[in-house]
């Protein structure tokens, strides 16, 4: 997924001489081609994220389009107030490309995880949040964002992610993507965990003869309220599944929409809790331990269908 995103940034920088890429000293073995071909517009600002957001803001205020690349907690948590005041209050053309969605950093553990990022960025004015499920979506989204002059956060998982987008996928930024039409059970998900959701759905069909509707919300802000309500009305239970904390993430956003509607329906949130992990392991291992792999998701859904 990462390579597709970087190559789209490269293409945008090649087309438009007013586009910059900033990094907080990260991107080894990833950003070299951009550095080599656009030396004046590639800036490694050093390990100084507050300054990095400020510099990006000054560049944007002078008419530049700026991408910023870093690991999610350093990119958005260390310098949250700079993002709020300098980028969002001024509605600047800056795209924050955050690496390491959810548990992606695996054995590097808690300091590198991104399980609260959506929760803290959703409330910010003028902010757009894009959370692609795979490289196909990532590339389509980056093409759209190349002419979207507003604050944007792109939530990126591992370098390689399973492809879940269907053949001939028609991507619409800001719209929910219906991945599977089903009955009664409706699942909303986002990001690379969509792959686990699809596999959990196959288990449901195989073992329980249940085919859930699966909606992928690659755009978390603005959220496609109309599609969410339309699908929710057809269901008898809703599950939200994300590799993010249950507080403030996609599940909270969907719950907000449902609770303001007149539709009496349960929303079951599947995600992480606000407890730091005491053990380490790869993302696949941690997903399994936390019930976020296909098997774990399947079990949780079955429990709630009893």
């Amino acid at each position: 997924m990462r390579d597709g995103i970087i190559s789209e940034i490269y293409n945008t920088m090649e087309r438009n001489k007013n586009v910059y890429l900033l990094t907080g000293d990260l991107g080894y073995n990833t950003l070299e081609k951009i550095e080599k071909d656009f030396p004046d517009r590639f800036i490694d600002v050093g390990v100084a994220e507050q300054n990095m957001i400020g510099i990006a803001s000054g560049l944007a205020l002078s008419g530049k389009k700026v991408y910023i690349y870093s690991i999610i907690p350093f990119l958005i948590m260390r310098c949250y107030e700079q993002i709020r005041n300098d980028i969002c209050y001024h509605d600047l053309d800056i795209t924050l490309v955050g690496i390491g969605a959810g548990l992606a950093y695996g054995i590097l553990s808690n300091t590198h995880f991104a399980l609260e990022d959506i929760a803290i960025l959703r409330p910010l004015p003028n902010m757009t949040i894009f959370s692609p499920a795979d490289e196909v979506e990532a590339i389509e989204g980056m093409k759209y964002l190349s002419s979207h002059p507003h604050p944007t956060y792109v939530r990126v998982g591992l370098r390689k992610e399973a492809v879940v987008s269907p053949q001939n996928y028609i991507f619409h930024f800001g719209k929910a993507s219906l991945m599977q039409k089903g009955v009664d059970v409706c699942i909303f998900t986002t990001g690379s965990i969509t792959d686990e959701v699809i596999r959990a759905s196959k288990l449901l069909t195989l073992n329980k003869k249940i085919t859930p509707t699966i909606i992928n919300l690659h755009t978390i802000k603005p959220l496609d309220k109309n599609t969410i309500l339309k699908e929710a009305l057809k269901a008898s239970i809703i599950f939200t599944i994300e590799e993010h904390g249950k507080i403030g993430g996609l599940g909270s956003a969907i719950s907000d929409i449902i609770s303001e509607s007149a539709h009496p329906i349960r929303v079951i949130k599947i995600g992480t809790t606000d407890v730091t992990s005491k053990i380490v392991g790869t993302r696949a291992y941690l997903r399994k331990i936390l019930g976020l792999d296909a098997e774990g998701i399947y079990k949780t859904i079955v429990e709630h269908l009893k």
Binding site: N51, M52, G54, A56, S57, G58, A60, L61, S62
Partner: peptide, 8 residues
């Protein structure tokens, strides 16, 4: 920091 961006 914003001033640095303008200056750059």
């Amino acid at each position: 920091p914003v001033g640095l961006g303008f200056a750059t």
